[in-house]
Design a protein around this nucleic acid. Structure first.
Length: 267
DNA sequence: CCCGGAACCTGAAGGC
DNA sequence: TGCCTTCAGGTTCCGG
């Protein structure tokens, strides 16, 4: 499940292979992966373009093109980009002018890509970058005021803050000792500060460990990341709390599995 | 605007 | 062996 650390890892590791290269062709084993414009126009506009940069906004990858347009890719839950043929589940292949290929692997076909003339539009509906300078504890505190939804749901809301998903939300809440079902507006200033710090820590650690391969995430080389080995609650079903030894709990928040320690994270 | 739940989609894993 | 159920979760849409 690519979240900010996974998408950032892919951006960093893919960049040297694509920047400066031109798109020579396109294979689409599953055409539904292209959202817009029409298939024919998508190919016409993309083929021949040089990739001038590779950026990221939230969980979106942004390939800047020499035409001034941009190719946007969202990997959703099971997508990954490969430098070699992964074998199964290839939904699209971008052929580059040096003979190399980028393979879009996605078992569940949730991932999408599209062309836009305005790459800034990608961020229009997104909140501040979770690791950006403008995402301060004060900003978080303002955004949580008067909110009654569970803090876990709010952390995963990309319009509130961009980049956090299910796994890193669980990790940040555990580190800050806050129960995922607490209403956003009920957090004290102290708790918000702890949570803000925890978000920075778990995301930076995730990037350092090149992402978490709990399931279908792979790096462009096909290697896995190692961030999940550092997880203290996320995906640790049936295990005990690393701090107090209590059995971890799994609850459902907004239709998403959430892991927590019932003793360290009181309701 | 805010909140919660369903839908999208398919493979892996576990129970019987 | 094989069928069935459950689980996985980013985003979008819809109803209240």
């Amino acid at each position: 499940m690519p979240e900010l650390p996974e998408v950032e890892t892919i951006r960093r590791e893919l960049s040297p292979y694509v920047i400066g290269r031109s798109v020579r062709g396109l294979s689409l084993p599953w055409e539904g992966i292209v959202r817009q414009p029409s298939l024919e126009e998508f190919c016409n506009r993309l083929i021949g373009q040089r990739i001038t940069g590779l950026g990221r906004r939230g969980k979106y990858l942004i390939f800047s093109l020499s035409s001034g347009q941009a190719l946007i890719i969202h990997l959703k839950m099971t997508g990954s980009l490969w430098l070699k043929d992964p074998g199964k589940f290839v939904r699209a292949v971008i052929h580059l002018d040096d003979g190399s290929n980028i393979y879009f692997r996605d078992p569940r076909k949730f991932g999408i890509m599209w062309l836009t003339e305005d790459e800034e539009s990608v961020g229009a509906k997104l909140g501040p970058e979770a690791l950006g300078e403008d995402f301060t504890a004060k900003v978080l505190s303002e955004k949580l005021k008067k909110r009654t939804a569970p803090i876990k749901a709010l952390l995963c809301d990309q319009g509130l803050v961009a980049g956090i998903g299910n796994m890193y939300a669980d990790e940040a809440l555990f580190m800050a000792k806050i129960h995922p079902m607490r209403a956003g507006g009920s957090l004290t200033e102290k708790e918000v500060k702890r949570l803000h710090k925890a978000i920075q820590k778990v995301l930076r650690a995730g990037i350092n460990d090149k992402g978490a391969s709990t399931d279908t995430y792979f790096r462009p080389s096909g290697e896995k990341g190692s961030a999940h080995w550092q997880f203290r609650v996320a995906h640790r079903r049936g295990e005990n709390c690393p701090l107090c030894g209590m059995p971890l709990e799994r609850i459902v928040v907004r239709n998403r599995g959430s892991y927590l320690c019932p003793k360290c994270q009181k309701p």
